[in-house]
Design a protein around this nucleic acid. Structure first.
Lengths: 162, 162
DNA sequence: TTTAACGTTTGAAAAATATCAAACGCAGGA
DNA sequence: TCCTGCGTTTGATATTTTTCAAACGTTAAA
């Protein structure tokens, strides 16, 4: 096996595990890794071939990756039949934003439950009230820092690519 | 159904979904929600009863929650047979730290793959080299902001509870 | 010391998820 | 226009994960 192949294999393996650890499909990680590795966009059946899977799941996962803005379709001259894909230039930022949505949902849960608890005005709900209060503050502060990170990263990235 | 019961039910439901969205077991979210709701620590079979599950999975998930430092065992006077559990006082922070570990793993992947790519010294690996470079910078900066958040939160929390 | 209640472990069953092969519809090229 | 190759959809199959019930070991109470 060549050095390139070993590196590609390890990238695929580790992205698969990482995606799974984040609660996403392992195959998602494999496709992302493959596209990160490849200097050129890949067609769907190139992906199926390299990952040794059948077309069905690849087609479905590719759609989901596109919905998440992690990859995008590329028009390739001289090939109007096949779809080619590459990773989004800002793939890491988009992945992060997907995660931010989960955080915002946590804030929402705390906020809504807190309201319901306050409306109920029951002593027995006092402890859960305090906890929802803390939870809301926690995730609101987290959102602020997540946004700090995003603005700083966009500065950093501009420096990198010019 | 009383107001308390409705709120408890909704909390359980929404924590279940949230935990699943983060790639964790739904049952984990249910147990956390139940303990967040309850003003008093709960015994294992109180949990099994309230969630309508059998002892096996509850026992296993409770262990995993303890490993993750999200809940802890409480000694209850007058009851030396049963184990009682409550949420960790800093449960949200601990949950966040668990997530931080995943982020650190991403940094590690980028760093290690970058090294291997550099050692190989192949032109064909140039594009993946750039991408691993960017990935590493991205997650390193993220770690910094995550830590900023943690220090700010600990200040904020002190203000809250004194 | 014996008993009974508790938490854990385990093997089987059920449910959920991932995967495949084949059928299908659509559009580009003949 | 008619093929042919492509991506998608679909129903069946395989794999993984979750759940349960029962057996087990341990320990507090009698």
């Amino acid at each position: 096996m060549t050095t390139e192949e070993r590196i590609k294999k390890e990238l695929i393996q580790r992205f698969g595990d990482a995606y799974k650890a984040f609660g996403l499909s392992k195959l998602m990680g494999h496709i992302i890794a493959l596209l990160l590795f490849s200097p050129e966009p890949l067609s769907l059946d190139e992906i199926t071939k390299q990952l040794g899977r059948s077309k069905g799941p690849i087609s479905q996962i590719v759609r989901r990756l596109r919905d998440k803005h992690l990859i995008r379709k590329v028009w390739m001259p001289g090939n109007n039949r096949k779809d080619f894909y590459e990773v989004e230039p800002e793939i890491f930022e988009h992945a992060f934003r997907n995660n931010l949505e989960l955080i915002k949902n946590n804030t929402r849960i705390a906020k809504q439950l807190k309201e319901k608890v306050k409306t109920a005005k029951k002593d027995s709900l006092h402890s859960v009230d305090l906890r929802m209060e803390e939870m809301e503050k926690f995730y609101l502060l987290m959102e602020i820092h997540y946004n700090n990170f995003l603005t700083e990263w966009s500065k950093e990235r501009k420096k990198l690519y010019k």
